[in-house]
Structures are given as C-alpha cells and as structure tokens.
Design a protein around this nucleic acid. Structure first.
Lengths: 232, 232
DNA sequence: TTAGTGCAAATGTCCGACATCTACATACAT
DNA sequence: ATGTATGTAGATGTCGGACATTTGCACTAA
C-alpha cells in the first residue's frame, strides 16, 4: 500500500563488500603491496559465500586496486583508483602529454594556492622544502624524491580544490608508472631556487609570480624529462 | 623446460569477458540506456558458466558502466568510465571546484589549440559555431546545448593532447551529473561573440588571445574568473 | 477502461566440486 | 653444508546446480 520509499532497498551484499574492502585499502588496514586474506577465509569470517566475496574482489581487481595471483593470493596494487585507470589503457596519451597536463594542473594550483593559502599551508611548504634540501645535501635519493613529491602535493593541497589534488595525484602516479627511472637527477642548482621562489610567491600571496615560477619550474623539468625519452 | 614466456599463461576468462563487454559498450553494440542480454543467455552463448559472466558484469557495474536491476535486467549506464568514478564518490569536491577545474582544463586547451590546430580543427570549430548559432536562432534548447558542448569538445581536441580531452570530458560529465540545469541560459548576446572570438584566436594561432578569450568566456558565464593557464 | 492477478524471467546469494598453479617445506644428492 | 628435486597444502579460476526475491507483462475480471 503506502510503503512509500522508506527502506527503499538495501544494497546487495557484493556492493557492501566492495565498499568495505575499498575502505580497508584506503585506510591502510590492507597496505599496498601486502597480501589480503584468502577468499575462503574472508567468506567464513564475513559470513557470506565465496562466490559473493569473489565478485567483490574481482570488481576491485578490474578497477586496478587489487591483483590476484593464481596459486598465491590477492595483493593490494594501489590506493589510487583514478591513477590505475589512467595507467591501464594507454589511450591517455604518451609521456609528453602527461607532463603537459601535469604542468597545467600544478600551475593552476600555484595560482590558487597564492590566494587561498593558510598559515598551516605555508608551514607545510617550508617543512617540505627543508626536508628536500636536507635529502639533497645527504645525497639520499629516495628521501629526495619523497620530499620533492611531498612539496608538490602540499602545494596542490594549498589550492583548496580537492578535485585538483585528486587529478594531480592520479596524473602524477600515471607519469611515474610511465617512467620507472624517474629521472630524478642529483640536483640542478636552479631547481632548488625555483622551488624556494615558488614557496615565497605563495606565502606572499602573489598569484602572478606563483604562476610564473610554476611555469618556469615545469619548463626546466619538462626539458630534463624530454631528454631521457620513453622506451617503446 | 625451456617454455620461455611464449603463451605460458593466457588471461582468465573473466578478464577476457570484461574486455569484450567493455568493447561492446564502447563501440555502441550495447548502446547507453539499453538492456543487455541476461546472464544465462550470455553464459550459454559464450560457452562459459553464469558465475564467470556475473563476475565480469559485476566488475563493469562497480566501474559504473553497467547498472543491474533485480527482476528486470542489466542496463548500460555510460561509456565514460572516468566520469563515472569522478561522479560516484563525491570526494572530488563540490560544484564550484568542478567548474574551477573545468575552466583550468579548457583555458589550457585553448592555448594549446592555438598552437597545434590543423585545418580540419578550424573547419570543425566553424561548423560547431554555425550549428550553435542556428540552434540559438531556432530557440531549440536541446540542439543549442548539444552544439555548445560540441564546440568545446572540438576545441579541447584541437589542443592535440588526448589526456587533456579525456580529463575534460570526464570532468564535464561529472558536472552535468551534478546539475541538470547546466543549460547555460537561452543566450547572452555577449556569449556568441566570445565564442566567435575564441575560434578566431585559435585560427590565427594567437595563444595569448585564445587564453584571454577562454578566461573571459568562463568569467561571463558566471563561473569563477580563470586566471589559470600560462600565456607564455 | 481499469484494477487485480498470476506467471515467466532476471538478478542476488548460496553450496559444492574440481582444475591449475604457486610458494614453501621437506628430502635427497652432491 | 649447499644446491637440487619433490611433494604437498593452499590459493585462485571455473563450472554446475539450486533457491529466494523482485520485477515486467500479459491475462483476466469487474
């Protein structure tokens, strides 16, 4: 009769499992690179059939989040679904196009960061810069790459646009997947200065200068990356 | 022993089905909005079990391409997987952020289109503009919206960067999903002129003017002022 | 014409079974 | 002691059948 649309309809078990598994990947319960429990174990623990668990796991596998290995188990591949899709089908263009879009996103983020930056953003930027310089001085390549990535991520976050950050991280991840030899050279003295100048512009709230610094920064990096080329 | 790595292992049936179904959605064999054959029918036709078919269909459903309805069947929801993801989880930010990113992408595309445009690009732009004006004169809202979208899509394509086009279409689709009333009003006399001016700038290869026109275009429509791309 | 009914079909879920592959431990030969 | 072969347990991949619930639609009756 007048059932209206109160309990409308409960989502299928498979969807619930998908969301739960996705959360566990996202919050680190299932860290990237590790092996998750087997299908039979998950089924018995969650009180559902193995077929239902399989459907959920398969969906996340096709989405690029998981990677099943016959005879071994299922491993967590990545947490960024967007990046997985961009990487999967190469319809997204070659490395040059990726770098181009990346520069567009970061340049735009630089302008917006100069406008909406908070005190905390500036502190985070300074901290990332200090880490970056320290890693460079210590000749620690891994730490340098990490600190450099953290600086850029902090800059995008300071733009105050979550979608911008999401797209940037996905494109960036896709780029890293394209070139495993990240061409992270020791350190071009000019790059350090450009990073400092960009942070200064953001702190000063000078959108125009931030724009110029970001563009210049990518002109340098783009040149360096273009030299290495891409294996095909 | 020396099996090398020739055909050693072929992809699982589920993955093959996923790719096949995805192709059928993409090439229009299964048009958007229509109902695809039932699981039992697909299973018997393809010579696989229903469970395998279900895994493939479920994967595409979670990806946002299909939409199963209990007691009815499975329908094609969309062809743009990227847009489906951006739309699904609203972590990407609100409408304002979407519009902001959209303006960033289109402004950047305008600059690149002015540099890499071909004769065919210009013809396509002129054709879209003519359709747009005709629809406006005929007071045909649907045709106007379609022609307007075609113009912008053509502009992005003229940038020569496939990734840029892909991201734009996804973000645009996500925006349309956010607000159905995107039908940017009947027609502001100024808008027609701005579209013409943008096409002129692209044809002339004037990147700076294209940048200014695209930014002005978004400002006029009431969107955020876009001081995004790089005029260099 | 309209409201109600019943049926066929579709998806959702469960169970059980077997095949194939792999990591790991064990035993063996050097 | 070390390297190699072997076997086994467990993992994913696939299949078949079964039942529940829901829905669209044709049919019927008021």
């Amino acid at each position: 009769m007048s059932r209206m649309t109160s309990p409308v309809r409960q989502e299928p078990l498979v969807i619930q499992l998908c969301e739960q598994f996705r959360r566990m990947i996202d919050d680190g319960t299932w860290p990237v690179g590790t092996r998750i429990p087997g299908e039979n174990q998950l089924a018995s623990e969650l009180g559902v059939s193995r077929g239902t668990v399989r459907e959920a796991l398969r969906a996340l596998s096709v989405a690029g989040l998981l990677e099943p290995r016959v005879g071994d188990g299922t491993y967590v591949r990545t947490r960024d679904e967007l990046a997985a899709i961009l990487t999967r089908d190469r319809r997204g263009g070659d490395l040059e196009d990726i770098l181009d879009v990346r520069s567009v996103l970061e340049t735009a983020a630089g302008v917006r960061a100069a406008r909406h930056r908070t005190e905390e953003d500036i502190r985070a930027l300074r901290r990332a810069l200090a880490d970056r310089a320290a890693a460079d001085a210590a000749r620690d390549v891994d730490a340098y790459v990490e600190a450099d990535a953290a600086f850029h991520r902090t800059l995008i976050r300071a733009s105050g646009n979550p979608l911008l950050l999401r797209l940037y991280e996905a494109v960036n991840e896709s780029m890293v997947a394209s070139i495993r030899r990240t061409t992270s050279l020791p350190e071009d003295p000019q790059l350090g200065g450009l990073h400092e100048a960009l942070a200064d512009a953001v702190e000063a709230g000078d959108a125009e200068r931030a724009h110029a610094c970001a563009a210049e920064l990518f002109r340098e990096v783009g040149f360096l990356s273009a030299v290495s080329g891409e294996p095909s």
